[in-house]
């Protein structure tokens, strides 16, 4: 499918990877410099934040400032008292699907304020955010309503944040069904897909049950990433350009002070693929 002026449709897909997803801002810098237009943006988990900022057309510095305001360590500071009681006395405080160790009121408010109530209808570039249905495990693609709600659903980090109830469904983190949702861009008719993905880091040492859980989460999500990528790459008739930034040090969940470095690595990774992308675009 071609657009009016017969230009291939370009999609940008940003996978899960928490603060590392800010690398997408570096990628955008390169695309803007080269006047490469993006026709749709797809984001998953941490990638959903940056996909939304890009789709809204908020320029680099505003995007960084918004992230710094929304994503600070204190969003996970307030324990969910009910969850503690549910764990300690499950026979009294009934356990249910809305379990999460952290009280999510602060993060919900941060996303509402950060995205300034913007809706999908207001984006400059069509935006798609992915989450996972807790009950049937399937990927759910969100493309209407407020961006804050969709991003919150996509970032329901297991055990930390409770699943997010949206339109009658309990949604968990998008990476549970596909950490790099290239399939969404394919279905939406993209001809060229720029896919920025991140492997989930492994534990340096497994010293507790929780760390073992995190290790397993990385093992399974990385295998899911590989399996999905292999399939989409083979099944898609047009081009998928993977952009996988490499980081010299570990970027942790709230390392927002490292965002400038993360953006640099995103830029570097994008530059490496640029000649190929330009060739495809006939530039």
């Amino acid at each position: 499918m071609m657009t009016k002026n017969d230009r291939p449709r370009v999609a940008l897909v940003i996978g899960s990877g928490s603060v590392k997803c800010a690398a997408a801002l570096g990628l955008m810098k390169v695309l803007e410099r080269e006047h490469i237009d993006v026709d749709m943006v797809v984001g998953c988990s941490g990638g959903a934040i940056y996909a939304s900022l890009i789709a809204l057309g908020w320029p680099g510095q505003r995007a960084i400032d918004t992230t710094l305001k929304m994503w600070t360590r204190d969003v996970t500071a307030k324990r969910n008292t009910r969850a503690i009681l549910q764990l300690a006395l499950p026979w009294i405080f009934k356990f249910d699907e809305s379990f999460g160790l952290i009280d999510d009121r602060m993060i919900n408010r941060r996303f509402r304020d950060g995205f300034e109530g913007a809706t999908f209808a207001q984006t400059r570039i069509p935006l798609f955010v992915t989450a996972t249905d807790l009950y049937n495990g399937e990927q759910v693609v969100l493309s209407d309503g407020t961006i804050a709600e969709a991003v919150r659903a996509s970032i329901s980090i297991p055990y930390i944040f409770p699943p997010h109830k949206l339109n009658g469904r309990f949604l968990v983190d998008g990476y549970q069904s596909d950490p790099l949702p290239i399939g969404v861009a394919i279905k939406e008719g993209a001809d060229i897909i720029i896919a920025m993905g991140f492997e989930s880091p492994y534990q340096e040492q497994i010293t507790s049950l929780m760390r073992y859980n995190y290790q397993m989460s990385s093992v399974t999500s990385n295998n899911l990433l590989k399996a999905n990528f292999a399939f989409h790459n083979l099944a898609h008739h047009s081009e998928i350009i993977p952009i996988i930034p490499e980081f010299k040090h570990r970027i942790k969940l709230f390392d927002t002070d490292k965002i400038p470095y993360v953006i640099e690595e995103g830029e570097r990774a994008a530059e490496a693929q640029l000649p190929y992308l330009k060739e495809l675009l006939g530039k």
Binding site: Q86, L87, P90, K94, F95, D96, E97, F99, T132, L134, G137, P158, Y159, V172, Q176, S177, D178, N213, M216, T220, S221, N223, L224, A227, N228, A230, F231
Partner: peptide, 24 residues
């Protein structure tokens, strides 16, 4: 239904495994 932390863990695990199964 989710009546314990273990149930939630099992469900999240099933979601991963089934999605890996489907894509592989």
């Amino acid at each position: 239904r989710f009546r314990s932390m273990t149930a939630v863990q099992e469900q999240l695990n099933s979601i991963y495994m089934n999605n890996i199964l489907t894509s592989t």
